[in-house]
Amino acid sequence: MVIVAGKGGVGKTVVTASLARAAASLGLQVLMIDVQGRSSLGRLFDDGELTYETQELFRHASGGTVTGRVLSPDEALVEWLEDHGMKRVARRMAKTGVLEVVATATPGIKDLLVLAKVKQLERAGAADLILIDAPAAGHAITFMQAPASLVETARVGAINRQAQDVLDMLSDRTRCRVILVTLPEETPVNELVETAFALEDEVGLALAPVVVNGVYPVLDGLDGSAPQVAEPAATDLAVAGSLRHRRQTLQSEQTARLAAELPLPQLVLSHRFDGMLEPADIADMAEELLSGIAALPDQVIA
């Protein structure tokens, strides 16, 4: 199982979809889980919105498949209560707001139960690879820290046992890895480095290579002056070339800094210039990831 996490706007969902497609092309049965609802995971496979039911989104000639579903925290909580002998009251508790009190009394319980449900799917052999499109921003850390902190706060009872089980899964590098996604820019890189250390030190999670998304392919020869052309586009040519040159320089500074501060391999995904991402783009990005992975010293995914 792989958790894909990163700051808002870095393209986590696109990376999740591309990884899923890459793994399916190797013949794996892949299940993508959207824990927030309303993500575009389904659309990236030319399908509508994902639902609570698992649906098939893509089938590769090798027999590998991509399926997807939503796993919302509220549903996870109700389902867990039902599974633990509270079938009769669970829905009523949700309706009357008592569940909100429970969730407030034990922060992280919903996150824990989402992960517990994933663990259940993993144990049931629901797929060869489960990819979780994690919540954005700061919440990604809280999401993954939930089991560790609940082992501390709920010292006894069913929740404690549950938290312990999930923690075992998270800290077992043969069962769970985290892929952090960033853009080659200062702020996302800073956040990625902070998140990486927090996850490793505080949760004991194993980190897979990081994905640097939206990288401009390097064009050479932009350090000189723009070619002199006698036409209206001359100024725009100069503007575009020097802006591209400046952004290329910044992005190589940032990826170099990332490499220096975080000793993890990097997989690079090129910036897409052609507007709305479509299934064909996801196929390209899957290829790009696969060749990036092939170039790594050893096999790290799945």
Partner: peptide
Amino acid sequence: SATGPAASWWRALADFQRCAED
């Protein structure tokens, strides 16, 4: 059709323009 650095400058313009149009 351009050669040398000019190809890069036109490519940079084409890429950004592709984005900008969209």
